[in-house]
């Protein structure tokens, strides 16, 4: 078991897990290698209670107000928001692409569901990401075991419920091993 670095204060409501906020931003036009990804990602801080969460969140910029190529990551304390982390390497993520204007509300609903243990998949959830891009925004939720179809189906159904998305919203599940393969050798079709 991981050592808990922060504890709930007196009178506060403890969370099932401690979490850490991270922020990353990529300089335009510079492809990110694994190393530079790790260097670009900054820890904002960790919390153990509902009240500590709000103290961070209330002072953070809303994703919809971010510019450029930026991401907020909220992961269980001790799990790095990277494919290579032991908790993530056999895992995958549900990805939802959002038209501009929806990211702030969807991100808040997603992380409140995660902190409140709404997904009901035991230890499976690793964390969540909101990625701000030029044309669209992307939210994703990462879990430990990509091959566990009962878990991934339950996460999908919970996402549909808590995000209250339009019925035509496309949800895509991607394993991290596919993401790594794709990054290392993109399908040749792309270049025909």
């Amino acid at each position: 078991t991981r050592k808990k670095m922060v504890i709930p204060g007196v009178g506060e409501h403890p969370l099932q897990y401690n979490y850490t906020f991270w922020y990353s931003r990529r300089n335009p036009g510079r492809p990110a290698s694994t190393q530079s990804y790790e260097q670009n990602i900054k820890q904002i801080g960790s919390f153990a209670s509902v009240e500590q969460f709000w103290r961070f969140y209330s002072h953070m910029i809303r994703p919809g107000d971010l510019t450029g190529h930026s991401d907020f990551h909220l992961f269980k304390e001790g799990i790095k928001p990277m494919w290579e982390d032991d908790a993530n390497k056999m895992g995958g993520k549900w990805i939802i692409r959002l038209r501009k204007g929806l990211a702030s509300r969807c991100w808040e609903n997603l992380i409140l569901a995660m902190l409140g243990e709404q997904f009901m998949v035991g230890e499976e959830i690793c964390g969540a990401v909101v990625s701000v891009r030029f044309q669209e925004d992307i939210i994703s939720i990462w879990n430990k075991t990509a091959s566990d179809q009962a878990t991934t189906a339950r996460i999908r159904d919970t996402l549909r419920r808590v995000l209250n998305l339009p019925p035509n919203t496309i949800m895509e599940y991607k394993t991290h091993t596919d993401s790594i393969k794709y990054k290392e050798s993109p399908p040749s079709l792309l270049f025909h």
Binding site: E12, V50, E51, W54, R55, S58, L115, E117, Q118
Partner: peptide
């Protein structure tokens, strides 16, 4: 073991607590 479950409304209500500021 038991899990600590909170719904969205409860979490949003906690935002107004003096402890959350």
């Amino acid at each position: 073991g038991t899990r600590i479950i909170y719904d969205r409304k409860f979490l949003l209500d906690c935002r107004n607590s003096p402890l959350a500021r």
